[in-house]
Nucleic acid binder design. Structure first.
Lengths: 208, 208
DNA sequence: GCCCGTTTGTGAATCCTGTAACACGAATCG
DNA sequence: CGATTCGTGTTACAGGATTCACAAACGGGC
């Protein structure tokens, strides 16, 4: 498995490359150098070349990278060629916003089910998705081939919900709750936390 | 200015400490060791002690850290003792969700104004905030002491909107648009991008 | 076919971050 | 009151990541 000796920071940058390349492609560009791509993303050409070199040789000396080809390769590497199925837990304000967010589908991420522990929510329809009781979670994950759990519950419920999701069989967790939850080895977690972002921002703003 | 030689990674971790300490405080704990805090956050005690040592000596040998005291110090360091005023640009679905998000206010972040370039939106009320035309932006930023701009517009509009915000005088940008915008030196930017998070996650999921 | 400007891929060198080790202060206990 | 335990702050070190520098490769022009 190639993921073994690729630094995680590198993996975190790959989606940025995918996005920048897609944008350039939209603009009609067919070939790009690490120089140009670096200018676009505000990073050094050397870093881009080094990052890519972990996975293969995609460029041509003297020319640069063929965008279409590199994009296909990067999508393969990241596993973006298939549809990824996710379920959402928590259909409060935040959860509803996530379901209705139009940015996931075009990238191949589909929310196929929603759950809530509140009986008033269960049975209602949110953005075309039936809200199910937490008890159905394991069954749905298995039947619907769900690999990603999205957590949009209040802080105190986050850890128990994540435990249930993991036990249910999801392999990745996208956590919107303002906590730093613990997950067993082998489960991939990403936190979305605007408050943390703001709190580190103010450090630099406070006496500027 | 202390911010000069403190590594950015360290600054990014400070809000995590604030959060964990707050949680412990809620639970009634008064003193905590780097050991315990590390267990809570899944990091080594050494790292916590090193991080804190960039800013001063907050602990007592043999005892640990007084939570109330350390919290006060960290809040000071991060600049979290004052109210931070932000404005939002873009009151589509995402923008509305951000305005209604209840997580900002308790941490001292207030959204005091909202803008949109769409004339149909201008004048409407969203979550108790009047939506203003983009033209009023500079004026409002100055008059209302706004230091942070929150961007919730479609990708193509993000860069121009950010340019306007910066010219208008904000010092920090919280960007929800799926792009990697360029900002002049001295402006602090943080990106909130769940799609990027998912795309780096799938790298590890794709053949697990 | 050969030269020339360009740009890649990659060791080597540098910089940065995290970890381990330890000396010292503070509290506790008999 | 001396010995012991605990946990900090700090220094030294190891491991990673980033940048540098250059040989090798490519394409175009002639």
């Amino acid at each position: 498995m190639q993921s073994m000796d690729v630094p995680e920071v590198v993996v975190l940058r790959l989606p940025l490359y995918v996005r920048a390349l897609t944008q350039l492609q939209m603009g009609g560009t067919e070939v790009v150098s690490s120089q140009q791509l670096g200018a676009h993303l505000q990073m050094t050409p050397a870093q881009i070349r080094k990052d890519l070199s972990y996975f293969g040789r995609f460029g041509k000396q003297g020319r640069g990278y063929n965008i279409q080809f590199l994009l296909k390769e990067l999508r393969d590497i990241l596993g973006l060629t298939k549809e990824w199925r996710a379920c959402l837990v928590g259909v409060g304000r935040l959860g509803r916003a996530i379901i209705n967010y139009t940015g996931f589908a075009p990238e191949g991420f589909t929310i196929v089910a929603a759950f809530d522990s509140n009986d008033d929510q269960v049975g209602t329809d949110v953005g075309g998705i039936q809200v199910l009781p937490m008890g159905d979670l394991a069954k749905v994950i298995a039947k619907q081939d769900v690999t990603i759990g999205i957590v949009a519950v209040p802080a105190v419920q986050a850890q128990p919900v994540i435990d249930i999701l993991v036990k249910g069989g999801v392999k990745g967790i996208l956590n919107y709750a303002p906590v730093a939850p613990q997950v067993p080895l082998g489960i991939v977690m990403r936190n979305i936390d605007p408050v943390l972002s703001l709190q580190s921002m103010t450090f630099y703003l406070k006496d500027g």
